[in-house]
Amino acid sequence: MLEILEAGGLVTVQDAGRRGWQKFGVPVSGAMDWFAHRAANVLVGNPPDAATLEIGFGDVTLRALRDCVIAVTGAGFVTSTFAWTFPLWTSFVVHAGGTVRIMKEGDGNWAYLAIAGGIESESMLGSRSSYLRAGLGQKLEVGDRLNIGQPSRSLDELAARTFSPDKLPLYSSSPVIETLDGVQSNWFTKDGLETFYSSDFSISPSSDRMGFRMDGAPIARVHAAELLSEGMTIGSIQIPASGLPIVMMADSPTTGGYPKIANVVTADLPLLAQVPFREGRIRFKMTSVEEAQARYRKMTRALEDGIEEVENDAKFAQ
């Protein structure tokens, strides 16, 4: 078991998401940064879709109640246990009674803590992902304890593994985010589309797991007709009456009624999720569905062959 001693920011359990219930209006949820979530699991020998702790925007301290192997991934955090500071994207042993601290430091928003065996919180509608608006899962607080499953291998085999740095997403506070043409892009003027693809946007601090609201130049529309509500997805970019884009994120409603100018490709969702609110700058760029799917396949292959043993693993033992 893991016990939570400090829970700053937003701490929830997230897995690869809740699928099969969108027709009833249930969002997929799951990790904001799918790549970091899966990589954390792979590092500790879990199935890639196992449940992890998602830590957003704050410091967290945990105590291990038995020996375990942990990996923390993501961007904008550092990890320490006793005197040791560990880089992200590395697995390490924590002995029974030991504590791990994950501290917000640097550019980035979300960290993923995977533990060998996975977090075994209650599964609701086939997933352990938290969706707080509907009471699925909960915001974790000091004193909460998490059940852990059986590791797939011995802790010795799972510790001191790291993720090859050249296979990581290029996290940045000013990324270029690739998108596909939106299903209603012809609802926008030529100037509006030009503004969308050639100006800088920042992420409003009023953003959350449901959507990232963009600050920047408003996008002009051809007419003010209303769209009949239709399905949308994580990455869909809606333009409401204000003209300022909203990028739908993990807790996106399943349907929406604003025209969609574009859709962020799956491969760039991790980059977008980690852009610092307010200070970061985003540019959107158009790509093709074939390119987008090829990039996604390449990233999932990197998850399979990105793991390396740490050469001198003495420093990872306590």
Partner: peptide
């Protein structure tokens, strides 16, 4: 194919791009 989402006049089909191309 992962799931479908019916709306007033449109159907959204969610799929796994590792299994299927567009």
């Amino acid at each position: 194919i992962r799931e479908t989402v019916p709306a007033y006049a449109a159907l959204l089909v969610h799929y796994d791009p590792l299994t299927l191309t567009y």
